[in-house]
């Protein structure tokens, strides 16, 4: 096609533009994009690294405190993690490896969070009517004076 030279040239130009767009796309889309979903996959690891690990789980506590761990595993609180009351492991063993006494939450509020009588809770779950517990109201009293949190009995 002698007279179609200009058409040939514009087609080449369009092909070059498309190639540039595809090339730009190759640079602009991060490598790990779409690994887990519509975001940059590598960002997950970056976000995890940016935050110090605080909680370690009951198994980590059992490494040193096997007596308490055994007692807890046999009792009604077997599904309550140690770190709920004893603060995260990160507050007990610091980043430099030194061991400090962790703050322990012995408050009435913590126990009441699960055991306050609420109509919506399952009937079989141990619940305390705070106005009529043993000898009248118990609001604000320390539960641990009578109950052992590692192996609680009703």
């Amino acid at each position: 096609m002698e007279h179609g030279k200009h058409v040939f040239r514009i087609v080449i130009l369009v092909a070059v533009i498309l190639a540039v767009v595809l090339l730009a796309r190759g640079f602009l889309v991060p490598r790990t994009y779409g690994l887990y979903g519509r975001y940059r996959g590598a960002n997950v690891a970056q976000q995890m690294d940016a935050r110090p690990v605080l909680y370690a789980g009951a198994a980590a506590c059992a490494d040193c405190h096997s007596d308490e761990a055994t007692k807890r595993a046999a009792g009604a609180h077997k599904n309550v993690n140690c770190e709920v009351c004893h603060a995260p492991l990160g507050a007990h063993i610091l980043a430099d490896g030194s061991v400090v006494k962790p703050p322990v939450d012995r408050s009435f509020t913590l126990c009441a969070r699960c055991h306050r009588k609420v109509a919506a809770r399952p009937a079989g779950f141990p619940q305390v009517d705070l106005e009529q517990h043993v000898n009248g109201p118990v609001e604000g009293k320390v539960c641990l004076e009578c109950h052992d949190p590692h192996s609680p009995k009703p």
Partner: peptide, 19 residues
């Protein structure tokens, strides 16, 4: 802008019209 081709022959213009 003309992409270096200056062809305004009737054949080329016919091709333009088709395009």
């Amino acid at each position: 802008l003309a992409l270096g081709t200056y062809d305004t022959s009737p054949e080329a213009i016919e091709i333009d019209h088709k395009a």
